[in-house]
Simulated assay, not measured.
Amino acid sequence: MPHRGTAEKRTAKSDPIFRNRLVNMVVNHIMKDGKKSLAYQIVY
């Protein structure tokens, strides 16, 4: 049992072009070595 309590759920942010959380979740999943701009190019 943690002493600090439970962590609160955070919602995923939406992507800048389509304003869709699912697109941002896919980008974060395929992101390699922190290169988010490359992952956005692949998805779009």
Rank of each mutant, 00 (worst) to 15 (best):
N24V: 01
R4C: 10
D15A: 07
R4I: 06
N24A: 11
S37D: 14
Q41G: 03
A7K: 13
Y44V: 04
Q41P: 01
K9C: 05
M25Y: 06
K36T: 14
I30P: 01
H29L: 11
I30A: 00
G5W: 02
M31N: 02
M1D: 12
G5S: 04
M25V: 14
M25I: 08
R4T: 13
P2H: 06
I17D: 10
I30F: 04
M1E: 10
M1G: 10
Y40R: 11
I42P: 04
N20R: 07
M1P: 09
S14N: 02
Y44M: 10
A7L: 13
N20Q: 05
Y44C: 05
G34C: 02
M25T: 02
Y40S: 03
I30E: 01
I30T: 04
M25L: 11
Y44G: 13
M31K: 14
L22E: 11
M1I: 02
R10I: 06
N28G: 15
G34D: 02
P16W: 00
A12H: 04
K35T: 01
A12S: 10
S37R: 07
T6N: 13
M1L: 09
T11N: 08
K36L: 07
F18L: 13
L38G: 06
D33V: 02
L22M: 05
Y40G: 04
T6P: 14
T6G: 08
Y40I: 03
R10Q: 15
I17N: 12
D33T: 01
A7G: 05
K32A: 01
I17H: 08
P2Y: 12
H29G: 08
V43R: 09
G5E: 00
N24L: 06
S14K: 12
A12P: 08
G5R: 07
V27Y: 01
I42S: 02
V43T: 04
R19A: 09
T11L: 11
V23Q: 07
K13S: 10
E8K: 15
M25R: 14
Y40P: 02
V26M: 15
E8F: 01
Y44H: 11
E8M: 09
F18T: 14
A39E: 04
V23F: 08
R4A: 10
V43W: 12
K13A: 06
R21F: 00
R19I: 04
V23S: 03
G34P: 03
V26P: 01
A7S: 09
K32Y: 05
R21C: 06
I30S: 01
G34M: 01
A12L: 10
G5F: 04
I42R: 07
M1S: 07
L38M: 02
E8D: 14
I17A: 11
H29M: 15
K9W: 06
R4V: 05
T11G: 13
T11S: 15
I42C: 01
G5H: 02
K32G: 01
I42T: 00
I42Q: 06
A7N: 11
L22T: 11
I42F: 11
H29T: 06
D15R: 04
S14R: 13
M31Q: 08
I17R: 12
A39W: 02
V26C: 15
F18E: 14
H3Y: 10
G5K: 03
N20H: 05
R21V: 03
N20E: 10
R21W: 05
H3A: 13
R10S: 14
L22Y: 12
F18G: 12
A7T: 13
